[in-house]
Every structure is written in C-alpha cells, then in structure tokens.
C-alpha cells in the first residue's frame, strides 16, 4: 500500500460530542504511528442495517482524542461551526471553481459510462461471433475521429463554455464520437473539498475524558493498543500490538486512587480474564506520585495484573 503523507497536526471533527475522522489516510496513519484504532461507524446510507463491515467515519474515544491532542498530533474542529463559516464566507471564485470541477467530473463520468456500454456491446457481439459488425463500427469510428475541425469531437472547449457561469452546465457537450452526451449531475458527498482544511484553533479545550483516562494513557505509553472494553465488562481491552494480529492481553478497569472496589469484582474479573487467556488489570493514578513526579516526569499510574492462581 502506498504510504500517504499525513501532515500533523491533523483535524478531528467534533460533531454532537463525538470525535470523528473522515480521512482514510489519517485513520491508517494513527493506527500505524500512534497505536490508535478507533471504531469505524459508517454504514451504507441506504443499507444501514448492514453493520458487519463498517467504513468511515471513524469514531474515536474521548481518551484517544485527548491523547492525540495532548501530544500535539491533532486538534479539534467544531464541525458545525466550520461548515457554517466555511460555506457562508466562501468567495465567488472558489464557488465557481468548485462548480467547474463538479461539471468536469460529471462529463467524465458520462463519457466513462458510455465507453463502458460500448465495451460491453463489443464483448457481447464477439461472444456471438459477430466480429464483422465490430469491424464495421470501428471503421465508422475512425472515419469520425480524425475530424477535429467540426468542434463536436473534442470535449474541452464546449465544456468550458458551459461553465463560464455558475449555472448548471448545458447538456450540449459533445462526445468523442460526435454524439451528444448529457453530463451527469454530481451531488457532492464530501465537504473537504470544497472547504479547505480548517485552521488550527489553539483555544479549543481538551476533550472531557472519564476518570479512567490515566490508565488508558499508561497502557498507550507502554505501546499497547486499547479498544473499548464493554464486550468484556471492563473499560478497555489492551492488545500488545495491532488487534488484527494479536489477541488481547488485558481487560483493564480504571479506578481512582481511593475508589473502593469489591473483592468480588476482582474475583469475577480475574476469573473471566483467565478464562479467555487474558489478565484482569486494574490501575489508576496516584495523586501523590503525580505531584512529586511532575519534576522527574515519571508515570504516576500504578497498575496491577490479576490472574487466577489455579489453587
């Protein structure tokens, strides 16, 4: 796979308190470089019940977003505001350029469809043993193509003409075969383009994270991949490498330093973890170590791994 360069910091869209990424290059970049998997949540719009293989956008946990922002890899963009200001304040030139771009795409698509139809026809004729017909057709075609003077054979000029205004393109664009082809009307499905990448706003506050964030950060700093842990009744499932390559090692539950927990939870978690070849992990941030560790930069998080003793 060709590695596409992602420039950091990259934007993370905040929509209705969800942190979303719409760029597939960024998605693969953070997975490769920052051990962050996120959860793909996109379905096919008209087949939304098809939820086995989901696509972009990718939703990030607030913890993942916070980590990326804290380390300066990403920044948050209020997507609703960015759209409002972006489209309201778009200049006429930009708008026209975009419309022209859309028209060009429409023509290309129409031509492409026509070409494909012709190919299909050719194939079917060949299968039926009617090659002579194809040759006749080709002869006719070669008669037409060396005739650029008619102006109808080339696409470029008439295309440009139709786009000199912001009106929808007139359906008089000629095809390479001298036949008229109506350009397709494209409904734009992305907003980048036409919108430029939103600028970095340093004033944006960090995402609010649950109290289990220190444990998440601790596991990430040790190179673990963390995914949401609801399936195992914990906060995170931690993988020693990419979840596609490794089994998870830990069922992690984050706690406050003085938060009381039942021993029955330890027994239950430990037993469940051992049953699925994992360890149950509890951990949290020591406020004292945090205060004293600010200078030497040591990690104030303490974690304990629990396994069934087998007695």
């Amino acid at each position: 796979m060709a590695q596409t360069l992602v420039t950091e910091p990259f934007p993370i869209s905040r929509i209705a308190n969800r942190y979303l990424i719409f760029d597939v290059n960024i998605i693969s970049h953070i997975r490769r470089e920052h051990n962050i998997c996120g959860v793909l949540i996109g379905t096919i719009p008209n087949l939304s019940q098809q939820n086995v293989f989901l696509g972009i956008p990718m939703q990030l946990m607030p913890e993942e977003t916070r980590l990326l922002v804290e380390h300066g890899h990403a920044y948050i963009v209020e997507d609703a505001d960015a759209h409002k200001t972006g489209f309201m304040e778009m200049s006429r030139e930009d708008r026209l350029a975009f419309l022209r771009q859309m028209d060009k795409q429409g023509v290309e698509m129409a031509l492409d469809a026509k070409r494909r139809a012709a190919d299909k026809q050719e194939k079917v004729l060949k299968e039926k043993g009617l090659e002579r017909k194809i040759q006749e057709k080709n002869l006719r075609r070669t008669d037409i193509t060396p005739n650029p003077a008619t102006g109808e054979t080339s696409v470029g000029p008439s295309d440009e003409k139709s786009l000199s205004d912001s009106m929808p393109p007139s359906p008089t664009v000629g095809s390479a075969r001298g036949q008229k082809v109506a350009p397709y009307f494209i409904t734009p499905t992305t907003s980048h383009p036409p919108l430029p990448t939103p600028p970095l706003s340093p004033a944006a506050e960090l995402p609010k994270v649950p109290h289990t964030y220190p444990l998440f950060r601790h596991l990430q700093s040790k190179g673990y991949f963390s995914t949401p842990g609801l399936r195992f009744g914990c906060h995170y499932t931690a993988y020693p490498g990419d979840p596609l390559r490794f089994h998870s090692h830990f069922l992690a539950t984050g706690l406050d330093w003085d938060e009381e927990f039942e021993l029955l939870d330890i027994v239950g978690g430990g037993r469940l973890g051992t049953g699925v070849k994992k360890a149950y992990l509890i951990g949290g941030e020591d406020p004292e170590a945090k205060a004293s560790g600010k200078e030497d930069g040591s990690d104030p998080v303490r974690a304990f791994s629990i396994e069934w003793a087998g007695l």
């Binding site: 601790h218 360890a279 303490r302 791994s305 003793a309 007695l311």
Partner: peptide, 11 residues
C-alpha cells in the same frame, strides 16, 4: 486464590 502482579504483566 488470585495472583496479583505489581504492574502490567502479560498473562
């Protein structure tokens, strides 16, 4: 009986 490790110890 459960074994508790100090730190992140792989299972």
């Amino acid at each position: 009986y459960y074994i508790v490790h100090d730190g992140v110890v792989k299972p």
